[in-house]
């Protein structure tokens, strides 16, 4: 029984990692690719560590596996936030199907110096966003 659980968790982890890599190859722009890399990648890694915990079934390995899962879930959003900020700051080309860009109106990213300044007079993004194509 526990063998089937281990095999199932390991296979689903591998499939999620594979989906993440297909996403990073096929999706249209940097920000969307980041979505595939961080979400599916972290889920795949977490499932793999869960299967490791199910395979060894002893306390120290399980604790280390859960520590690794906790660490993955802690660092993936931080890394994604930093990469997304860097990508937006360096003005990567967004996909042409993008129709909401909330930061463009409310936040003057890196306009001068290298700090983010909130523009107090910016109109509310809800009133200025374009309609979907």
């Amino acid at each position: 029984m526990i063998e089937i659980l281990t095999a199932f968790l390991m296979l689903s982890g591998g499939i999620f990692c594979f989906i993440a890599s297909v996403g990073i190859l096929r999706l249209p722009d940097t920000i969307i690719r980041m979505h595939a890399a961080t979400k599916a990648g972290a889920l795949g890694g977490g499932l793999m560590f869960l299967s490791l915990a199910a395979f060894y079934m002893d306390l120290s390995t399980t604790l280390r596996a859960f520590a690794a899962i906790f660490f993955l879930l802690l660092t993936a959003p931080v890394a994604a936030h930093l990469i997304g900020r860097a990508a937006y700051c360096s003005r990567v080309n967004l996909s042409e199907r993008t129709w909401i860009d909330e930061l463009a109106e409310t936040c003057q990213w890196c306009q001068r110096e290298s700090t983010c300044e909130l523009n107090e007079n910016a109109p509310d993004f809800q009133t200025t966003q374009k309609s979907p194509k």
Binding site: G13, G14, C17, A20, S21, I24, T30, R33, M34, A37, T38, G41, A42, G44, G45, M48, A68, L72, A76, A79, I83
Partner: peptide
């Protein structure tokens, strides 16, 4: 982004 995913894949 790709390098970040490669590191997660190597951990898996």
């Amino acid at each position: 982004v790709a390098l970040d995913l490669v590191s997660i894949l190597i951990v898996s």
